[in-house]
Simulated assay, not measured.
Amino acid sequence: MDLGIAGRTALVFGAGGGLGGAIATALAREGARVGLADINGDALARTEARLRESGAQTHSIEWDLSDIAGAAARMARVQSALGPVDILVNNTGGPPPSPVAGQPADTWQSHFNSMVLAVIGITDLVLPAMTERGWGRVITSTSSGVIAPIPNLGLSNTLRSALVGWSKTLAAEVGRAGVTSNIVLPGRIATDRIRFLDEKRAEREGLAFEDVVQQSTDSIPLGRYGQPSEYGDVVAFLASERASYLTGSVFRIDGGYINAV
């Protein structure tokens, strides 16, 4: 299937990580020019080297999402190198495991700035040109915790849920201009982040790491963790011409893991 995005410009955040790297790879494979943003310069360089080996046109930029004031200048650098952004993939790092009660106000504020306010501000930077051109895709990666809150991920459950309401509202505001806005959320995808969370759970509950993984796997109807490439492929489809009538929705990429309707 031709997804119809060859020559489009995409900007993928968290591109040095497992999910972001897989999304960038899927978009590049379809012929998109891909901007790569991440706070981790070494990880970013590895993703860019891999994509360029396959012939992709890329531009990478170290981007600390907590630096909200610097977002416009960084966006200008990306668009100068690749052209106006047609496809924006908002993919932020997650906060550390924690209960929801008793967190200091400055902890909430810090993670709100980098996980919510930064996403909203960056999207606002690209929306005017998208609406003027009559085409755009805003895809925001959150967490399964927005549907079924995950124990001991209080900060993530709360802050990522705010992005669901924002994305739905945005879809109604920009749809007639040819711009779609959707949420994607991972279940248990085999990334470093999931390994970290499994390790922390094993420590917290006094379990062997292998037992934690087995319990998780047993709860997934497909009987395994997902691969990052499977996540990236769904995002690439949502970014495509073929997905032009999909907006304001939440897409679970979870192998049936989320135990809620």
Rank of each mutant, 00 (worst) to 15 (best):
T123Y: 12
V126S: 07
S143F: 05
G145W: 03
V138L: 04
L159E: 06
S110G: 12
V146N: 15
L155G: 00
M115A: 06
V116E: 12
S114Q: 08
G136E: 11
A129C: 06
G154P: 07
I122Y: 13
I139K: 02
R137T: 06
G102E: 11
S161M: 07
I120D: 14
S143A: 09
N152W: 09
Q109I: 06
G121S: 10
E132M: 07
R137D: 02
G154N: 04
D106G: 11
I122D: 15
V126W: 07
L159W: 10
P149C: 01
T142V: 15
S144K: 04
L117T: 08
M115H: 01
F112A: 10
V146W: 14
L155R: 00
D124G: 09
M115C: 13
R137N: 13
R133E: 08
H111K: 06
I147E: 15
L117C: 03
I150H: 05
P99W: 00
L163Q: 02
G134F: 07
S141F: 03
S161W: 08
V126F: 15
I147V: 15
G145L: 01
I150L: 05
A101N: 09
N113W: 09
G145Y: 11
I147P: 11
T142Y: 08
F112W: 14
D124I: 00
P99Q: 03
M115D: 06
V126L: 13
T142Q: 05
G136Y: 11
W135F: 10
G154C: 01
E132S: 04
V138R: 02
R137V: 04
N152H: 05
S143M: 04
I122Q: 15
L125C: 14
T131G: 03
G145V: 07
L117W: 08
E132D: 09
Q109S: 07
T158R: 03
L125Y: 08
T140K: 15
G145S: 05
I120K: 06
P104Y: 05
L153D: 03
L125I: 08
T158I: 06
E132R: 12
A101Y: 15
T123H: 04
G134Y: 13
